[in-house]
């Protein structure tokens, strides 16, 4: 599982959902949790963090947001060599099969459909960690 010092970025245009995700992450033992309210703000934070020598180690993002959607943010990260391997979860109300396929094609690490419970998010985080650390070991 991600170590307790993992630096997270939570992205959602609704403050309520940012609070919910942050609450679950905190209960799982994480404390270095940052927030952004849309993909554009998030991408700026991602770039700034990397340039400052303290990159984000896991991004948890909504899909449907103004200015830059979560899918666009995912694609922007994948297009940048500095961020393409950063674990990226979509946590979204969008649950149509075509959308899940689109996100998978864009390289999402895991897809969580809202509403979700703490156990589901924990399980998905575990899978993301295993996926990325298995890839690193290989």
């Amino acid at each position: 599982m991600f170590n307790p010092n993992t630096k997270f970025l939570v992205v959602d245009d609704f403050a309520t959902m940012r609070k919910v995700v942050k609450k679950v992450l905190t209960e799982l033992g994480y404390s270095d949790i940052h927030e952004a309210e849309d993909g554009k703000a998030a991408f700026q934070l991602i770039q700034d963090a990397a340039n400052g020598g303290s990159p984000f180690q896991c991004i948890v993002s909504d899909w449907n947001m103004p200015n830059m959607t979560g899918l666009e943010l995912l694609k922007a990260c994948k297009a940048d060599a500095k961020f393409k391997d950063t674990p990226f979860m979509l946590v979204t109300a969008e649950s149509e099969k075509e959308q899940i396929i689109e996100a998978a094609k864009a390289g999402v690490s895991e897809y969580v459909v809202k509403p979700f419970n703490a156990a589901t998010l924990k399980e998905k985080l575990g899978r993301v960690y295993a996926k990325h650390n298995g890839a690193k070991a290989a």
Partner: peptide
């Protein structure tokens, strides 16, 4: 209002 926006977001998604 923020909360009900998110609740509606989830309902509309389903």
């Amino acid at each position: 209002l923020d909360g009900v926006g998110e609740i509606s977001n989830m309902i509309y998604g389903l």
